Computed example of a mutant assay.
Amino acid sequence: MDSFFEQPAWIALALSLKVACWATVLALVAGTGFGYLLARKRFMGRELLDAILTLPMVMPPTVLGYYLLVLIGREGVIGAWLQHHFGINLIFTWQAAVIAAAVVAFPLVLKGARAAFETVDTQLEQAAMVLGVAPFAVFLRVTLPLAWRGVLGGTLLAFARSMGEFGATLMVAGSIPGKTQTLSIAVYEAVQAGQDDTANLLVIITSVVCVTVLVAANKLTPNRNPQR
């Protein structure tokens, strides 16, 4: 019974929830913006842009982690700039874990948002504009309320994906107990150390959280083939 409430497990859970929440917020903002852009705008290379933005969904985690190191590492394009101008080092911090999880989760929000926005009748948006409503207000008062179920469904999937992120997170954030060791990394470390009780606890916690989120996402995702 003592092992069930082992402190490191709950620390890993708290850190995973923290990382997943922040990553989901970032993915939601970026995914909604790009989803609307791809759904409403017609421009050359639109589908190519969609494919590039979706890459994190299919790219091997180690490759994605390498790209992130190139960008935010100490010698990376962004990382070196942050270190030089602000003294900020992202590598091996929980913020790096957030960035990795957000990048991996982003395509899920993007796909859900684009599909949701494409189902909104553009005539309703045009009618609002004719009445003098500003474009951004049309988005907030007409488009988003009609597409919110699809956007939220993708967001919940992104949250679940962020909870289970492993490869890219391990490469850019490492495995520092209490600082960067998320649930998925803690499971790996427990198995490597032969701590089966801890591993089983962590797996159960992760599974319960992810199943709960997936059930909620299924309920919110619009049914495209309703039963008559």
Rank of each mutant, 00 (worst) to 15 (best):
P60V: 11
G150H: 05
F159M: 15
L69I: 14
I185D: 04
V208K: 05
L69N: 02
V215A: 12
V151P: 03
Q83R: 15
L13I: 05
L131T: 10
V213P: 01
F5M: 11
P222N: 10
I11V: 12
A190E: 13
F117G: 01
E118M: 14
Q95S: 05
L64W: 01
G132C: 08
A14E: 10
L68V: 01
A199S: 14
H85V: 14
L64T: 08
F4M: 10
L49M: 12
P135S: 06
L26D: 00
N223V: 11
W94T: 12
V25S: 00
L183W: 01
K219C: 05
E47I: 04
G164S: 13
K41T: 12
L38R: 11
Q195P: 07
Q192R: 15
Q126W: 11
I78H: 03
W22D: 02
Q83C: 03
G65Y: 07
G73T: 04
N225Y: 13
V172I: 15
A101W: 03
S162C: 13
A147W: 06
S207W: 08
A116L: 11
P61S: 11
A128F: 05
F136H: 09
N218K: 12
D2W: 00
V151E: 00
F139R: 01
L68M: 15
R228K: 09
T122M: 12
K179C: 04
T180Y: 08
V29I: 15
L38T: 04
P145F: 04
L71Q: 03
E125H: 07
F106I: 04
T93N: 12
T198N: 01
M57E: 12
A113G: 10
H84K: 14
V104R: 14
S175M: 13
L152N: 00
F43H: 10
